[in-house]
Nucleic acid binder design. Structure first.
Lengths: 341, 341
DNA sequence: ACGCACAGGATAATCGTTTAACCTAATATA
DNA sequence: TATATTAGGTTAAACGATTATCCTGTGCGT
């Protein structure tokens, strides 16, 4: 049924080495011999045993993607872009969900290493990634981080232009005449800090004083979008709307938008008449709300794509023994103006 | 650095076989010997080489998931459920996107087989899956289909209760007094046919004549949700709304809902006052539209979960040489009543 | 005629595990 | 006491490819 290289060699009347050379094009072979080999391959319907080859070559052609929260569509799109890019280089993707738990993330990395993946892409649950130093100590492989900047482990990274994107959003609000602009984010991490910085920068440039009370973050509980409707951001939004005189609201990510928008709907507040609204991170569904939401669109597909490229480049560098400094790539965001401001 | 079983054996003063037996618990070993081995493992920080093991055992512990359209959140959720289930059994998931192209799907399966996956889960682009007969001929592995029923290849399947769900939806509309109910679906395949049948059954039971002109399907072009806003379903909806006296609209899936809802919004039609609306397949974002959409919720996570279980069960059956008949499992849908009807 | 280079191919070691088969001493069975 | 069984190991043959090394014959230059 499943034939080995030996049988091909026998049928072709050559040695297994020759068959291997023909199949891999790794040594010169007389055309006639090559034909005999290929005919034998045809006749036996032979296909190489990748298990054996991987074993021999010490590689698996597998890249692991450890996702902090796979139920978040953002990361599903990153995975999509990553998969596409890796496929071009003959690698395949293994997806694992960390469910926003550091312990699961560590377990996932451990498991992936135990499956001898050739590389790792990580969307970390929290910033502290020092554990990787130990895990990768005796078997270093390329690692790329996406979306969140790690601490305690040097590596390649792919992030959105968080500060610039937020800056653009707030500048847009200011241009529309708003001065009382609040910022809500789901959790204060490096990414959200960058976006908050963009928010502040825009205000400063416009000569508007930064009101610390207008900057709110939710808790760092592990929660899915579904649970977020009446979470911490909802309460912050409620407070901002009822106890402060804000005229515009900038939401730091989709999670926060879920809470904030739910609050706006429940209070029956008119957007953009009563409150202007803009959100960081886009979703297809933002076109289906009333009004459609203006958003700073990220390009998760592209983030995955670039991360894949980085890994593949590192892989060839590893093979050639060269060592480049780590790099950080930013993927540009884009403001999509819709009805909400 | 990376030590092999041989060095462990040497350090422990036993044979490699003994080390293997200890590590796998596959033969009785004196406690004292076991301790010596485990100590050596500790000291050398030994970890088994999975490439070698897989090669030797002829398995990869990998399951491939070939997804007709990975940009569709439904399948991303299926993948999520699948990954979780497989992890419990020590298997890992390889995800590949077919981008709704049969040729890519076939290429994907071929690639996956070339990576020697131990099993396959397929969400087929089209119903004809006879190609699998040939591809799996000389190396049969378990296969499970999700969401769509294949033709030309017998295997396990996991589907939603399409007919029952649609029946429940339409019955609900009828109970609200509607009689002029239209049905739009994105494409006529086995799944959509089942939903249409549920629609007809509900009408028949209520003694309402089935108007063939009220049943519409879009084209079978490969399109993403994003492109669907002004596609065939949009046009059908426009036609139904402007040239017919329907009072309720039942959408067969999310793709159709995108087109139908876009049309309703653009015509500024009030839901549910002017038109009652209900959709098959739920999305978190349906809570964020105005009004929130009543939906027949599917449980993609659970579909993935069950598919994973099926594959794992088949896998042990394969090992034991037993052959069970193929089975079809239905995952119950649930009606979530919101504001749209 | 002699030596050399090289093309084209064969031989065999190797990767790290698993596991069937075999061995030995001790214990149980009759 | 003789024999069977068992516990606890060891040995060595696989698994299927890759690849360094070696071998042989041919063509070429001088």
């Amino acid at each position: 049924m499943k034939s080995s290289i030996k049988e091909v060699a026998h049928l072709a009347g050559v040695s297994v080495a020759t068959v291997s050379y023909v199949l891999n094009g790794t040594k010169k072979v007389r055309p006639e011999t090559e034909k005999r080999v290929m005919d034998a391959v045809q006749k036996l319907n032979y296909q190489i045993n990748p298990l054996a080859r991987n074993f021999r070559k010490g590689e698996s052609k597998l890249i692991g993607f450890v996702v902090c929260d796979l139920s978040n569509y953002f990361f599903q799109d990153v995975a999509h872009g990553l998969e596409t890019q890796l496929a071009k280089h003959g690698y395949r993707l293994i997806l694992i969900d960390s469910k926003e738990e550091k312990s699961i993330e560590m377990e996932n990395v451990r498991n992936l290493l135990a499956s001898s993946v050739d590389g790792l892409v990580i969307a970390p649950t929290t910033e502290d990634c020092s554990y990787l130093k130990f895990m990768l100590a005796n078997h270093p492989i390329p690692v790329a981080f996406v979306d969140r900047k790690p601490i305690g482990f040097e590596s390649d990274m792919v992030l959105s232009t968080n500060e610039d994107g937020a800056y653009e959003a707030v500048k847009h609000l200011i241009a529309k005449g708003h001065r009382e602009i609040a910022f809500v984010g789901s959790r204060l991490d490096s990414t959200m800090a960058e976006r908050a910085e963009g928010y502040r920068k825009a205000l400063r440039e416009a000569g508007i004083p930064v009101n610390a009370n207008y900057i709110r973050f939710g808790d760092s509980l592990s929660v899915s979008q579904r649970d977020h409707r009446h979470g911490a951001v909802y309460k912050h939004t409620l407070d901002l709307l009822t106890k402060h005189d804000i005229t515009a609201l900038f939401s730091g990510n989709t999670l926060a938008t879920v809470g904030a928008f739910t609050c706006l709907m429940e209070l029956n507040i008119k957007i953009p008449q009563d409150i202007a609204f803009i959100t960081f991170d886009d979703s297809f569904w933002f076109t289906m709300t009333t009004p459609a939401l203006t958003a700073i669109s990220q390009y998760p597909d592209q983030i995955g794509d670039v991360a894949g490229k980085m890994i593949c480049e590192r892989l060839v560098d590893f093979r050639n023994g060269v060592d480049r400094p780590h790099q950080l790539q930013r993927i540009a965001t884009q403001m999509i103006i819709r009805g909400s401001c």
